[in-house]
């Protein structure tokens, strides 16, 4: 499972980043935590995208994961980082599994729109319900690790990076299994896939559930890194758009791509916001269009090209 180049690179890169993080200033550690938290959701969206499915509503699962952490914190005082992560991923995954029975029959724009509708229902409920924090959301207390309250953010950073590494390895493995490989095949001709004796519905259902577990985990990790959840920046449709944006930015080429893409996104946003607070959306939108037009394979394809040139290919 760990023999291929990607797995080795993920392991090596993960260890390197964890070591480097010990010496990095806080704000850089923050960027990595936000970036890698989001990357988890992007990995899931990438799996869907390879099959030709784009969800314009995954903020639903992202938000579920984040709010699971918040509710656990406020109602039961759960602060353990692993319990929180698990709860976020499970709640979102369960919702995704159940809704998957319906969504697996949808394609194209209908798939995108039904996801949007579902996420907006949750948005409408949260915004209008005071006990769910309405527009303000909740502040989240610092996470503990096996009962210990860390002094710095570094331990959380190590955990997020490790979770990212494990997720990347697992998804990378999954993509090599038979069901995992049923991506382009489904996109191109579903009937042919059925004739070959595979159930398209099952394949899509599994992919969908995987993507929702990852999105929920991402939401939980994001909530813990930020220390805050609110509907506008966790559930609204613009968040779903943002997730898709990072997916396209990263490119579907490899499970490493979402991590690089998310980091680029995070840094881009930080600087766009600092340098041009009134035009940061413009910068993001323009980047997005440029990618769609000139770099359909995302940043990953660019890296591949550069790497290829270096090797003299």
């Amino acid at each position: 499972m760990l023999e291929d180049k990607t797995s080795k690179f993920v392991l090596f890169g993960g260890v390197l980043i964890i070591l480097a993080g010990a010496f990095a200033p806080n704000w850089i550690v923050n960027q990595f935590m936000f970036g890698f938290s989001r990357a988890l959701a992007i990995v899931g969206l990438m799996v869907l995208w390879r099959t030709g499915l784009v969800s314009f509503g995954h903020a639903f699962y992202f938000g579920l994961g984040a709010y699971a952490v918040a509710i656990l914190d406020i109602q039961l005082g759960v602060t353990d980082v692993f319990l929180r992560l698990l709860a976020g991923a499970l709640v979102a995954g369960l919702a995704g599994f159940l809704l998957g029975f319906i969504l697996r029959n949808y394609r194209d724009i209908f798939f995108a729109m039904l996801n949007t509708a579902i996420s907006m229902v949750l948005f409408g409920i949260v915004v209008k319900t005071e006990s769910l924090g309405s527009t303000d959301g909740f502040a989240i207390s610092m996470s503990t690790i096996f009962g210990l309250a860390p002094e710095t953010k570094y331990p959380l950073f190590v955990i997020i990076t490790s979770v990212g590494v494990i997720a990347a390895l697992l998804v990378n493995y999954y993509l090599k299994t038979t069901y995992g490989r049923l991506t382009t095949a489904i996109r191109d001709n579903e009937i042919r896939v059925e004739y070959l004796g595979f159930s398209v519905a099952h394949a899509i259902h599994l992919k969908y559930t995987i993507s929702t577990i990852l999105a929920g985990g991402a939401g939980a990790l994001m909530a813990m890194s930020l220390g805050q959840v609110d509907p506008e920046s966790m559930i609204n449709w613009t968040v779903s758009g943002e997730l898709v944006f990072v997916t396209i930015l990263s490119g579907p080429g490899n499970v490493i791509a979402p991590f690089i893409g998310s980091l680029v996104f995070e840094v881009l946003r930080t600087y766009a916001f600092e340098l041009a607070p009134q035009a940061w959306q413009l910068i993001m939108g323009a980047t997005f269009l440029t990618i769609i037009f000139f770099l359909p394979g995302g940043i990953w394809s660019l890296l591949e090209k550069l790497g290829g040139r270096k090797n003299g290919k």
Partner: peptide, 16 residues
């Protein structure tokens, strides 16, 4: 931009 964005901004203000 909402509370969550402000939290991220605040961290940048202080730490960066």
């Amino acid at each position: 931009g909402g509370a969550t964005k402000q939290v991220a901004e605040y961290r940048n203000l202080v730490e960066k």
